[in-house]
């Protein structure tokens, strides 16, 4: 079955892709939710409060 071969060949590359996607996702969350630079903080202020991030 094609899905079977895909799963086996994709196992190693899949982990690499997953790790990179997780790094990218955490990067975005850090940027929108946690970086304290004034411009970012002010723009994301309401979101940070409403999402339950530590804001200021």
């Amino acid at each position: 079955m094609t899905t079977q071969t895909q799963t086996i060949s994709g196992a190693r590359t899949g982990v690499l892709s997953a790790l990179f996607a997780i790094a990218l996702g955490l990067g975005i969350i850090t940027l929108t939710g946690h970086v304290q630079a004034a411009a970012l903080h002010d723009a994301a202020h309401d979101v940070r409060h409403a999402t339950g991030f530590p804001c200021h």
Partner: peptide
């Protein structure tokens, strides 16, 4: 508008982590 953009970005960040773990 900024709140909408940043909420969409934040949930895209969540989704990246979630889908990556789904693939594993």
């Amino acid at each position: 508008a900024l709140s909408v953009i940043f909420t969409m970005l934040t949930y895209t960040g969540y989704a990246l982590v979630l889908v990556a773990l789904m693939s594993v």
